[in-house]
Design a protein around this nucleic acid. Structure first.
Lengths: 139, 139
DNA sequence: GTTGACCTTCCAGTAAGGGGAGGCCCTAGG
DNA sequence: CCTAGGGCCTCCCCTTACTGGAAGGTCAAC
């Protein structure tokens, strides 16, 4: 199978598949003309990677998950730990975004959004200094 | 004022300040020895940038917000639009993360996390193919 | 035989800086 | 007067996970 077919079957772009080969996630064979030749198992791996990436796992997570997948002596606790750490990263990120959202949404609601220059959003960005300085927001 | 003082006052690392100069967000003067010389207005700008970045605005957003801040003919609607677009990006990102979180959390709960190899997380990553193929998850 | 689709490699770029090398400048202490 | 130290400078590579493009080889069809 050539890379185009694999791309279609796995749902990953050819560029991504080449990249995954470069970083050692898949190891396709080569035919005489230099083209990459993929097995069904490669397609399977790539689909696995695509799904793991879609869940937000890093490439390194994916590498570890694949290794565990290939290891029938694995303990599910190892897999679970990777997933739990990722879940925590996601929760942290969501919390961070929610905090931004709250502040930003508050500012947006306070802004008239008309033709006048007065703007609480800019005022907030300009005025809130770490050392408590009050800066002239009319500038 | 040298870059070290400005870093302390603005809360941004010197590296970041140099980077902001490189991309044209601040334009410090230079003294005879080649050192950057900052004015209070530069510190003000940098603090502004730091807060905008903390709210997740991109550098390009920051550039535009600063331009609006410097323009006393601005309409607050322009500021509000930038903020609203950013708010939408945040909401999209949160939704995406929440979706990941839901799936992942479901899988984590389903995983025993013990010494045995059986793992619903790996099974899910391996089995759900775009074209509906069922792949042997006992491998 | 030639067109066009496919494949190859390599280079460069993304966002927003971080790390570190190699080297100048300036001040304080002995 | 010399040196140690800390601060500053530029320059280059590194990060994540790809994506785009250029230059060129291959293959099947018309």
């Amino acid at each position: 199978m050539n890379i185009g077919d694999v791309a279609e079957k796995s749902g990953l772009p050819p560029k991504t598949i080449r990249y995954y080969e470069e970083i050692g996630l898949v190891k396709p064979l080569r035919s005489a003309n230099g083209y990459r030749t993929f097995l069904d198992s490669d397609v399977h791996k790539l689909a696995f990677l695509g799904r793991a990436r879609a869940l937000g796992f890093t490439i390194e997570d994916c590498r570890n998950l694949m290794a565990l997948y290939d290891d029938d002596q694995r303990a599910s606790s190892e897999v679970k730990e990777i997933a739990e750490q990722h879940l925590e990263r996601i929760d942290n990120k969501i919390a961070e975004l929610a905090q931004m959202r709250a502040t930003l949404s508050h500012l947006v609601n306070a802004c008239a959004g008309d033709h006048r220059p007065d703007c609480p959003i800019l005022a907030d960005l300009a005025a809130t200094c770490p050392d408590g300085d009050l800066i002239d927001t009319t500038a």
